[in-house]
Design a protein around this nucleic acid. Sequence first.
DNA 1: GCCAACGTTGGC
DNA 2: GCCAACGTTGGC
Length: 151
Amino acid sequence: MRHWLMKSEPDAFSIDDLKRLKKDAWSGVRNYQARNFMKEMAVGDAVLFYHSSCEPPGVAGLAKVVADAHPDATQFDRRSPYYDPKATKAKPIWACVDVAFVRKFGRLIPLEELRGAKALKDMVLLRRGSRLSVQPVTKEEFDAVMKLAGK
DNA sequence: GCCAACGTTGGC
DNA sequence: GCCAACGTTGGC
């Protein structure tokens, strides 16, 4: 099993939204590197759900992959902000996995606290200028975050 | 294939 | 709202 971190702006889609829906397709990713990481994901992989562009930013909870990468439906939808005119059903460009809610942490683990954790010093999230919205996390990093979450 | 211009992300 | 750091686009 592998571990990942996925970012979302809580104003758009938060851990509470995922809890309410139970599961959802992680659509709208329009970055090739992030897409490629989703294609590497497998059912059962663990996902740290990160809240970005909010105060404070941080890891809000835990999700899991429940469907392998499949074409992102929003690329074909002319009314979607994620519509991509270059994509066709025969030759889709963008993919997404489905993720399910596992749990919301008792407290949000703020970015600042992650920066302070020795075990996380090499985390992709903390690298200078890292804007990747989908990124791999090592087992050690994952365990360290879970420890900070208190469970 | 280079690279300047432009757009986006996301912390601050 | 600012702006650094990137990714993408398109002219050449």
